[in-house]
Design a protein around this nucleic acid. Structure first.
Length: 296
DNA sequence: CACCAGGCAAGCC
DNA sequence: GGCTTGCATGGT
């Protein structure tokens, strides 16, 4: 749990300054496609909302500043959110025995897989289907602004992710303001299942990865790829290896040299990366996008 | 104008 | 089972 023993906390006014963090880079963390609610506002500085709390965070080398943050919130919310209890050095070392992964890791060496809320992850990745990241972020922003709760932070107003009960009471017409297109009915289906007791955070977490995947796929708009993302980003199932267009391209480019089916790529990844598949996927996604692999 | 974006559901066979 | 097609919206 307290792996980051080199980590040191101190206060400057109301800002919590954390030094000694290893394997941590905000640009890598927020630009590897796992999270849609943090935005860059300056060099290595981001503002976003998670778990109902707004946060401004900035980084300079191994010093990370959590603005206007209590030590209680850091320990109970952000430590877990940024996965600070995990030894990424060991993960990178293991993955780097593979020459492709060694290079991918060197590009995104500060990546961490965020521990995001399950419900938010479900809706976010329903919206992600056949969509691009800037538009996904826009839809989610409008969704939170329209239906989330206000929270004041550093003189500005932010909005929490709308809860399932609120969304379950909406119609597709109500949701049209977020411009999610045909995904509006899927969002409502997810909200109904999460608010009528058919699905719950506790229930899904109690299931094996395979059963959790089946349960998630009972939601309209949640298929193979979206459920893999939810398992990885919302349920901490690190053996999950979501195969999207970027991952398909870079895997074909780096490992196969020719076009392959998604199923073939999934099986290859499970065999090669095993329980570290999710981490491998994030390094590969960042690497592919940084280098525009497969884009002519 | 076509084509694509972190795919999926529904309708075929 | 596997394969094809339509799908909202916005950018290039």
């Amino acid at each position: 749990m307290w792996y980051n023993i080199c980590m040191d906390l101190q206060y400057k006014n109301n800002d919590l300054i954390v030094t000694g963090l290893r394997d941590f880079n905000l640009d890598h963390i927020f630009d590897c496609g796992q999270c849609f609610r943090f935005n860059a506002v300056d060099e290595q500085t981001y503002i976003g909302v998670a778990k109902g709390k707004a946060l401004k965070i900035s980084q300079s080398r191994d010093t990370v500043t959590f603005y206007e943050t209590t030590e209680e919130d850091f320990r109970s919310v952000w430590f877990d959110y940024f996965d600070l209890g995990r030894d990424y050095g060991e993960i990178k070392k293991t993955l780097s025995r593979d020459s492709v992964m060694k290079k991918a890791v060197s590009y995104g060496d500060g990546i961490r897989i965020l521990n995001q809320e399950l419900w938010e992850t479900v809706v976010s990745f329903i919206i992600s289907a056949s969509n691009n990241i800037p538009r996904i972020k826009g839809i989610i922003e409008r969704f939170c602004h329209a239906f989330g709760n206000k929270t004041e932070y550093m003189g500005n107003t932010y909005y929490s992710f709308p809860d399932a009960e609120t969304v379950a009471s909406l119609t597709c017409a109500d949701l049209s303001v977020i411009r999610a297109g045909y995904r509006d009915k899927y969002i409502i289906d997810a909200a109904l299942k999460f608010s009528n007791g058919e699905l719950s955070d506790e229930y899904i977490r109690s299931l094996s990865t395979l059963d959790a995947k089946k349960a998630l796929m009972s939601i309209k708009g949640v298929g193979n790829k979206v459920s893999d993302c939810i398992l990885l980003f919302g349920l901490c199932r690190a053996d999950s290896f979501p195969v999207d267009v970027w991952i398909k391209r870079i895997m074909e480019y780096c490992y196969f040299g020719s076009e392959q089916s998604i199923d073939t790529i999934s099986r290859f990844a499970a065999e090669r990366f095993g329980p570290l598949g999710g981490f491998a996927q994030q390094y590969l996604f960042f690497y592919a996008r940084e280098n525009k692999i497969g884009i002519s």
